[in-house]
Simulated assay, not measured.
Amino acid sequence: MTTFDLTGRRALVTGGARGLGAGMAQALTAAGARVMIADVLKDVGEQTAAGLEGGGFVPLDVTSDGDWEAAVAHTVAELGGLDIVVNNAGVEVTQLIVDTEPDDIRTMLEVNVLGTMLGLKHGLRAMRPGGAAGNGGSIINISSVAATIAFPAIAGYSATKSAVDRLTRVAAMESGKLGYGVRVNCIYPGLVATDMGVKLAVETSGLGLFESPDAAVGAVVELTPSGRLGEVADMADAVVFLASDASRFVNGAGLPVDGGMGM
């Protein structure tokens, strides 16, 4: 057994049906955890969950307090507890500040900020002493390199992901001061060629900021000391680290997983 071993632990991953979330769920499973995928995409989520040994699926709109209460209760009942929550669900809308659409900003605030805050609320309630699980644990929030750099056409997204960083640090302090036994950290993923990442490249070039989607990707790579885009496995391995005993004295931290782009 190593300090990265998650055998016997139970995890809930939001936005786990596809993309980064699916990769995180698979990596947690490979490390020994049983994983509940929570997503609004029922068919895709159930299909992804079917490939996870000992895992499952629960429908979850992260902006709904009631959905969160039900999803956590279902996870505890089905998996026998809860030790890890990954607040991964998020949305990105590409637009210039001069073209700001209030409804788009509200959507990002609801999903990226409120959704993470509700995940913290119900994760901490379940894992603290006296909670439904009650054995402490680890919460990992997914911020973004967008919280640490100035990249055009993602002002609203950057603002919400900066908020995720602040939420992480306050939650870690509250958990510590109140004796919850739950560590709270976040990661800042760099650009990955998921559906969301490809969409960003296409849309920023469509706004005339880059000559083409390939040029947009090239600009990101040029800003990255490691000289490449991120991969799903890069982000998933970081989540396993923060969920495991290998990070037992890491708390209230933001871990860049961006190849140095945000340094």
Rank of each mutant, 00 (worst) to 15 (best):
T3P: 02
T3S: 12
T3K: 11
F4C: 01
L6Q: 04
R10N: 07
A11Q: 02
G16Q: 01
R18D: 03
A27Y: 02
I37A: 01
I37E: 00
D39M: 10
V44G: 05
L52N: 03
G55P: 03
F57R: 01
P59H: 04
D65E: 15
A71K: 01
A73Y: 06
H74Q: 15
T75D: 00
E78I: 08
L79V: 02
G81N: 11
V85R: 01
N88P: 06
N88Y: 04
G90Q: 08
V93T: 13
V93R: 15
Q95R: 13
M108R: 10
G115S: 15
G115H: 04
M117T: 11
M117W: 15
K121A: 13
H122P: 09
G123D: 04
R128Q: 14
G130D: 12
A132L: 14
A133F: 01
A133Y: 01
G134D: 05
N135S: 13
N141A: 02
A146E: 11
I154W: 06
A155Y: 13
S158Q: 09
L167V: 07
R169M: 15
R169Q: 15
A172D: 05
R183D: 04
M196C: 12
M196Y: 13
L200P: 03
V202M: 14
F210K: 09
V217C: 08
V220I: 14
E222D: 15
G230M: 08
E231R: 08
E231I: 01
A233L: 10
M235R: 06
L242I: 02
G262R: 03
G262N: 03
M263Y: 10
M263C: 05
